[in-house]
Deep mutational scan, measured.
Amino acid sequence: MQRVNMIMAESPGLITICLLGYLLSAECTVFLDHENANKILNRPKRYNSGKLEEFVQGNLERECMEEKCSFEEAREVFENTERTTEFWKQYVDGDQCESNPCLNGGSCKDDINSYECWCPFGFEGKNCELDVTCNIKNGRCEQFCKNSADNKVVCSCTEGYRLAENQKSCEPAVPFPCGRVSVSQTSKLTRAETVFPDVDYVNSTEAETILDNITQSTQSFNDFTRVVGGEDAKPGQFPWQVVLNGKVDAFCGGSIVNEKWIVTAAHCVETGVKITVVAGEHNIEETEHTEQKRNVIRIIPHHNYNAAINKYNHDIALLELDEPLVLNSYVTPICIADKEYTNIFLKFGSGYVSGWGRVFHKGRSALVLQYLRVPLVDRATCLRSTKFTIYNNMFCAGFHEGGRDSCQGDSGGPHVTEVEGTSFLTGIISWGEECAMKGKYGIYTKVSRYVNWIKEKTKLT
């Protein structure tokens, strides 16, 4: 034993070699072989497995989906700052455009905790909710729209109204504003409101030439003092309507412009014939205590009207009353817009006519005020429907199939267009061939041609 100890002390290297040989010859039971080890760690190889990531292109799944990435790591994937920024906006807080917040056709661009709407022409605001041009839906104005110097929408209202708090709607500024039905039992019968379409306001006024200088022999019209197929109006439903009495009662109609003036057809009036105007009328054979009678003290036909040349060209006249009318729910003026808007309103496509005229061709006159909704007829169809001249200051309205029309005794009465609950004068009943005849239409004086003249002559002093 002493000898062994001496050998170990003198030859430590020998001992180490012996131990190493023993270990190498022993069977290893701690580690699995290569094949079995792979069965336990069965993990798919990654895209760049075996390579240094710093030297390969980034992978979106590896960089940002398996674990949260930084902007720089995302930049490695896209290799483009702009594309990385677009991805980053949604990656950080989701897609803010998912709810489609942009209105009126706006395009949404996502941002971090926010979004941006790219608005089409005519709109602005956070969600493109603000109209900035009158060309689109009248700028959301209830009545009139004008573009300011910086191309912003400025709404306005006709006389007797003021802008509401929203700067879009119009509200009454006087007790009985024009064009409004205020009798409670008839307010439910107000005709369907007309909503502004998209309009090209630059070209809204037709490029028409008034044929002022045409000389033409007097034409022989049949029954051209021209509501057939209409309905009984309720008291106060058309408070701007008046009836004219002269040699015979209810020979023509008219509309209240203001307390002192009536507008009617020029062919209705004769110099030297006494005319009485009755406002607030409903049943011409009954006294309903809503009527107001006034005498006409002055007749002003349009300066281009000449019955000797043509009885229905420039067929418009103004009547001055001896005493002002007292405005109330049964006696209310009709609204008159400017030339541009009167023309736009007419193009809405349908209007209402009213009167006490004959209820059928050569038949009896109506006792109760009649009204009828009539569609506008395109000019080409209008011209083809008659052998008589249709001037540019006239328009056609009615039904091709016949059966409904204005008729004798309705002449001078109103053709009105309702705009968001307020009625505007767009025409004056003038003439036609018979009444409600198939293929024939009622012919009306186009008020847009005469609004400046009306307003100039009827100013209240």
Results as ranks from 00 to 15, higher is better:
Arg75Met: 06
Phe399Trp: 15
Cys119Glu: 02
Phe78Lys: 15
Glu165Lys: 13
Thr458Cys: 06
Ala279Arg: 01
Glu10Trp: 15
Leu319Arg: 00
Asn304Pro: 02
Ala266Arg: 03
Asp322Met: 01
Asp33Cys: 03
Ile390Leu: 15
Leu52Trp: 10
Lys247Arg: 14
Ile15Ser: 04
Ser49His: 10
Glu171Asn: 09
Leu346Asp: 02
Val374Asn: 02
Ser25Lys: 05
Ser411Arg: 10
Cys119Ile: 00
Gly229Gln: 09
Arg62Glu: 07
Leu189Val: 10
Cys170Asn: 01
Gly236Ser: 04
Asn38Thr: 15
Glu434Met: 14
Cys128Thr: 02
Lys109Asn: 08
Glu159Gly: 08
Trp453Cys: 01
Tyr161Gly: 00
Lys247Thr: 02
Val242His: 00
Lys152His: 10
Trp356Ile: 11
Asn166Thr: 03
Arg298Gln: 05
Cys117Asn: 02
Asp410Asn: 08
Lys387Glu: 12
Asn138Gln: 09
Lys188Tyr: 13
Trp453Met: 02
Arg294Val: 02
Thr389Leu: 12
Phe221Lys: 11
His282Gln: 10
Lys293Ala: 06
Arg140Phe: 07
Cys407Ala: 04
Ala192Gly: 12
His289Ser: 11
Gly402Glu: 15
Gly355Cys: 08
Met394Val: 11
Thr158Phe: 03
Val243Phe: 11
Gln370His: 14
Gly105Asp: 06
Lys455Val: 06
Arg449His: 15
Ile429Glu: 12
Arg364Ser: 14
Gly236Trp: 05
Cys435His: 04
Tyr450Gly: 01
Glu288Cys: 04
Val56Ala: 15
Glu66Lys: 06
Arg373His: 13
Thr342Trp: 01
Trp431Ser: 11
Ser70Cys: 05
Cys382Leu: 03
Val374Asp: 00
Gln2Pro: 14
Lys146Asp: 11
Lys137Gly: 14
Cys252His: 00
Glu433Gly: 11
Asp410Cys: 10
Pro175Glu: 13
Arg226Phe: 07
Arg3Trp: 09
Gln237Phe: 08
Ala317Met: 03
Glu76Met: 13
Tyr341Arg: 14
Glu142His: 06
Leu346Trp: 12
Cys102Val: 01
Trp88Pro: 15
Lys152Ile: 11
Ile262Trp: 00
Phe78His: 15
Tyr352Lys: 02
Gly412Arg: 04
Gln90Gly: 14
Thr209Pro: 13
Gly253Glu: 03
Gly402Ser: 13
Ser156Trp: 12
Phe345Gly: 01
Val4Leu: 13
Lys152Asp: 13
Ile214Arg: 07
Asn100Cys: 11
Asn38Phe: 06
Ala436His: 13
Glu54Val: 05
Asn343Asp: 15
Met65Lys: 11
Trp88Ser: 15
Asp249Asn: 03
Glu61Pro: 12
Phe251Pro: 01
Asp212Lys: 08
Glu54Met: 09
Pro414Trp: 04
Glu61Leu: 07
Gln370Asp: 03
Asp212Arg: 10
Asn104Asp: 02
Lys347Ala: 12
Gly355Ala: 10
Thr445Glu: 03
Thr461Glu: 15
Ala308Pro: 06
Cys69Gln: 04
Thr84Trp: 04
Gly272Met: 03
Cys157Leu: 00
Lys247Ala: 09
Ser217His: 07
Glu433Cys: 09
Leu103Tyr: 11
Gly13Glu: 04
Ser329Phe: 05
Val227Trp: 14
His314Gln: 03
Thr271Gly: 03
Val77Lys: 12
Val153Arg: 14
Val419Ser: 05
Gly439Asp: 07
Gln370Ala: 04
Thr215Asn: 08
Arg358Lys: 14
Glu281Asn: 07
Gly412Val: 06
Val353Arg: 12
Ile136Gln: 15
Ile390Glu: 05
Met6Phe: 14
Gln237Ile: 07
Thr209Glu: 12
